[in-house]
Design a protein around this nucleic acid. Structure first.
Length: 196
DNA sequence: GAATCGATGGTCT
DNA sequence: GACCATCGATTCT
Protein backbone atom coordinates (compact mmCIF):
# COMPACT_ATOMS: atom_id res chain seq x y z
CA UNK A 1 0.00 0.00 0.00
CA UNK A 2 1.71 3.21 -1.08
CA UNK A 3 1.61 6.49 0.80
CA UNK A 4 0.42 9.66 -0.91
CA UNK A 5 3.41 11.97 -1.24
CA UNK A 6 3.91 15.72 -1.24
CA UNK A 7 3.31 16.05 -4.97
CA UNK A 8 -0.21 14.68 -4.62
CA UNK A 9 -1.20 17.56 -2.34
CA UNK A 10 0.75 20.29 -4.13
CA UNK A 11 -1.74 20.41 -7.01
CA UNK A 12 -4.77 22.62 -7.56
CA UNK A 13 -7.13 22.30 -4.58
CA UNK A 14 -10.16 21.09 -6.54
CA UNK A 15 -8.01 18.45 -8.23
CA UNK A 16 -6.75 17.27 -4.86
CA UNK A 17 -10.26 17.21 -3.38
CA UNK A 18 -11.56 15.05 -6.23
CA UNK A 19 -8.50 12.79 -6.11
CA UNK A 20 -8.83 12.23 -2.37
CA UNK A 21 -12.11 10.37 -2.82
CA UNK A 22 -11.41 6.67 -2.41
CA UNK A 23 -8.02 7.15 -0.73
CA UNK A 24 -7.38 5.78 2.74
CA UNK A 25 -6.82 7.98 5.80
CA UNK A 26 -4.72 6.09 8.32
CA UNK A 27 -4.18 6.89 12.01
CA UNK A 28 -1.61 4.84 13.91
CA UNK A 29 -2.50 4.68 17.58
CA UNK A 30 -0.72 2.48 20.13
CA UNK A 31 0.81 0.58 17.23
CA UNK A 32 -2.57 -0.23 15.72
CA UNK A 33 -4.10 1.09 12.52
CA UNK A 34 -7.40 2.96 12.49
CA UNK A 35 -8.41 3.80 8.95
CA UNK A 36 -11.20 4.68 6.60
CA UNK A 37 -11.81 5.37 2.94
CA UNK A 38 -12.43 9.03 2.13
CA UNK A 39 -15.99 9.35 0.80
CA UNK A 40 -16.76 13.07 1.25
CA UNK A 41 -14.61 16.24 1.16
CA UNK A 42 -14.90 20.00 0.69
CA UNK A 43 -12.45 22.51 -0.77
CA UNK A 44 -11.72 25.90 0.86
CA UNK A 45 -9.67 28.09 -1.40
CA UNK A 46 -7.92 31.37 -0.78
CA UNK A 47 -8.64 34.72 0.82
CA UNK A 48 -11.39 35.49 -1.71
CA UNK A 49 -13.45 32.49 -0.57
CA UNK A 50 -15.62 33.94 2.19
CA UNK A 51 -16.21 30.50 3.70
CA UNK A 52 -12.47 29.87 3.96
CA UNK A 53 -10.78 30.51 7.29
CA UNK A 54 -8.16 32.53 5.39
CA UNK A 55 -10.77 35.01 4.12
CA UNK A 56 -9.69 37.57 6.74
CA UNK A 57 -5.99 37.09 6.07
CA UNK A 58 -3.40 35.20 8.09
CA UNK A 59 -4.03 34.65 11.80
CA UNK A 60 -2.57 32.39 14.43
CA UNK A 61 -5.30 29.81 13.88
CA UNK A 62 -5.17 29.54 10.08
CA UNK A 63 -1.37 29.66 9.83
CA UNK A 64 -1.06 26.03 8.62
CA UNK A 65 -3.23 26.89 5.59
CA UNK A 66 -0.50 29.26 4.45
CA UNK A 67 2.17 26.64 4.91
CA UNK A 68 3.45 23.86 2.64
CA UNK A 69 1.12 21.21 1.17
CA UNK A 70 0.60 17.80 2.70
CA UNK A 71 0.30 19.12 6.23
CA UNK A 72 -2.72 18.90 8.55
CA UNK A 73 -4.88 21.86 9.53
CA UNK A 74 -6.97 20.94 12.56
CA UNK A 75 -9.26 23.47 14.19
CA UNK A 76 -11.63 23.45 17.15
CA UNK A 77 -15.24 24.61 16.73
CA UNK A 78 -18.41 25.00 18.78
CA UNK A 79 -16.46 24.54 21.97
CA UNK A 80 -16.24 20.77 21.58
CA UNK A 81 -15.49 19.57 18.07
CA UNK A 82 -12.40 19.19 15.90
CA UNK A 83 -12.28 19.27 12.09
CA UNK A 84 -9.45 17.87 9.98
CA UNK A 85 -8.16 19.48 6.78
CA UNK A 86 -5.32 18.71 4.40
CA UNK A 87 -3.32 21.68 3.15
CA UNK A 88 -2.94 21.90 -0.64
CA UNK A 89 -1.15 23.93 -3.32
CA UNK A 90 2.07 25.69 -2.38
CA UNK A 91 3.34 27.69 0.55
CA UNK A 92 1.76 31.14 0.65
CA UNK A 93 -1.49 30.04 -1.04
CA UNK A 94 -4.00 29.39 1.77
CA UNK A 95 -6.15 26.46 0.64
CA UNK A 96 -7.17 23.12 2.13
CA UNK A 97 -9.52 20.19 1.81
CA UNK A 98 -11.85 19.37 4.71
CA UNK A 99 -12.40 15.64 5.18
CA UNK A 100 -16.12 15.27 5.95
CA UNK A 101 -16.72 11.52 5.97
CA UNK A 102 -14.96 8.17 5.86
CA UNK A 103 -16.03 4.61 5.28
CA UNK A 104 -14.53 2.68 8.25
CA UNK A 105 -12.00 0.04 7.23
CA UNK A 106 -9.55 -0.91 10.00
CA UNK A 107 -9.75 -0.65 13.78
CA UNK A 108 -13.51 -0.35 13.90
CA UNK A 109 -13.70 -1.52 17.50
CA UNK A 110 -11.11 1.07 18.57
CA UNK A 111 -13.09 3.75 16.75
CA UNK A 112 -16.26 2.66 18.49
CA UNK A 113 -14.55 2.99 21.87
CA UNK A 114 -13.26 6.45 20.97
CA UNK A 115 -16.81 7.43 20.03
CA UNK A 116 -17.98 6.57 23.52
CA UNK A 117 -18.78 2.92 22.95
CA UNK A 118 -22.24 3.74 21.67
CA UNK A 119 -23.36 1.23 19.04
CA UNK A 120 -26.15 3.48 17.79
CA UNK A 121 -24.11 6.50 16.67
CA UNK A 122 -22.37 6.83 13.28
CA UNK A 123 -18.60 6.35 13.49
CA UNK A 124 -17.11 8.56 10.80
CA UNK A 125 -19.99 10.24 8.91
CA UNK A 126 -19.25 13.88 9.69
CA UNK A 127 -16.10 15.99 10.11
CA UNK A 128 -16.19 16.06 13.92
CA UNK A 129 -17.25 12.43 14.23
CA UNK A 130 -14.32 11.13 12.19
CA UNK A 131 -11.90 13.22 14.23
CA UNK A 132 -13.24 11.65 17.40
CA UNK A 133 -13.16 8.14 15.89
CA UNK A 134 -9.53 8.56 14.76
CA UNK A 135 -8.38 10.52 17.82
CA UNK A 136 -7.47 13.54 15.70
CA UNK A 137 -7.12 16.76 17.69
CA UNK A 138 -4.95 19.87 17.64
CA UNK A 139 -1.84 17.81 18.20
CA UNK A 140 -2.08 17.22 14.46
CA UNK A 141 -2.49 20.90 13.59
CA UNK A 142 0.38 21.74 11.27
CA UNK A 143 1.89 18.25 11.30
CA UNK A 144 3.42 16.76 8.17
CA UNK A 145 1.25 13.97 6.75
CA UNK A 146 4.04 13.01 4.35
CA UNK A 147 6.80 12.55 6.92
CA UNK A 148 8.19 9.11 7.50
CA UNK A 149 7.01 8.02 10.90
CA UNK A 150 3.88 10.18 10.74
CA UNK A 151 1.03 8.87 12.88
CA UNK A 152 -1.52 10.26 10.45
CA UNK A 153 -1.18 9.88 6.68
CA UNK A 154 -2.92 8.87 3.46
CA UNK A 155 -2.51 5.74 1.39
CA UNK A 156 -3.44 5.09 -2.19
CA UNK A 157 -6.56 2.93 -2.22
CA UNK A 158 -9.64 2.78 -4.45
CA UNK A 159 -9.94 4.61 -7.76
CA UNK A 160 -13.33 6.31 -8.10
CA UNK A 161 -14.63 6.80 -11.66
CA UNK A 162 -16.02 10.23 -12.59
CA UNK A 163 -19.50 8.76 -12.93
CA UNK A 164 -19.51 7.84 -9.23
CA UNK A 165 -18.56 11.33 -8.06
CA UNK A 166 -21.22 13.86 -7.07
CA UNK A 167 -20.69 17.54 -6.27
CA UNK A 168 -22.74 20.20 -4.53
CA UNK A 169 -22.61 23.28 -2.31
CA UNK A 170 -20.61 23.08 0.90
CA UNK A 171 -22.35 22.20 4.15
CA UNK A 172 -22.92 24.69 6.94
CA UNK A 173 -21.01 27.58 5.44
CA UNK A 174 -21.76 31.29 5.61
CA UNK A 175 -20.62 34.09 3.33
CA UNK A 176 -21.61 35.70 0.05
CA UNK A 177 -23.67 34.08 -2.71
CA UNK A 178 -20.56 32.59 -4.29
CA UNK A 179 -19.37 30.97 -1.06
CA UNK A 180 -22.77 29.48 -0.38
CA UNK A 181 -23.44 28.11 -3.85
CA UNK A 182 -20.11 27.10 -5.35
CA UNK A 183 -20.07 23.28 -5.82
CA UNK A 184 -16.88 22.50 -3.92
CA UNK A 185 -18.27 19.55 -1.99
CA UNK A 186 -17.30 16.20 -3.51
CA UNK A 187 -18.67 12.83 -2.45
CA UNK A 188 -19.08 9.28 -3.65
CA UNK A 189 -22.58 8.95 -5.02
CA UNK A 190 -24.75 6.56 -3.06
CA UNK A 191 -22.12 5.78 -0.43
CA UNK A 192 -23.90 5.11 2.86
CA UNK A 193 -21.19 6.80 4.95
CA UNK A 194 -21.58 10.25 3.39
CA UNK A 195 -22.84 12.70 6.04
CA UNK A 196 -26.50 13.81 6.17
C1' DG B 1 -38.71 12.64 8.62
C1' DA B 2 -38.00 17.80 9.53
C1' DA B 3 -37.14 21.51 12.42
C1' DT B 4 -35.22 23.35 16.43
C1' DC B 5 -32.11 23.95 20.25
C1' DG B 6 -28.48 23.57 23.86
C1' DA B 7 -23.79 22.40 24.81
C1' DT B 8 -19.29 24.72 25.33
C1' DG B 9 -14.68 27.21 24.48
C1' DG B 10 -11.13 29.10 21.27
C1' DT B 11 -10.35 32.90 18.26
C1' DC B 12 -10.47 37.43 16.65
C1' DT B 13 -12.10 42.62 16.47
C1' DG C 1 -18.66 39.94 23.05
C1' DA C 2 -19.92 37.76 18.74
C1' DC C 3 -19.15 34.17 15.94
C1' DC C 4 -18.63 29.66 14.65
C1' DA C 5 -16.74 24.49 7.99
C1' DT C 6 -21.05 20.39 14.48
C1' DC C 7 -23.51 16.90 17.02
C1' DG C 8 -27.09 14.67 19.44
C1' DA C 9 -31.40 15.05 21.80
C1' DT C 10 -35.91 16.72 21.72
C1' DT C 11 -39.99 18.23 19.75
C1' DC C 12 -42.83 18.96 16.28
C1' DT C 13 -45.77 17.33 11.89
Amino acid sequence: MSRLSRGFFARDTLTVARALLGQRLVRVMDGRRLSGRVVEVEAYIGEDDQACHASCGPTRRNAPMYGPPGHGYVYFVYGMHHCFNIVTRSEGHPAAVLVRALEPLEGVEDMRALRGGRPDLPLTSGPARLCQALAIDRRFDGTDLCASGALLFLEQDTSIPDGAVATGPRVGVRGDEVAITVPWRFYIRGNRYVSR
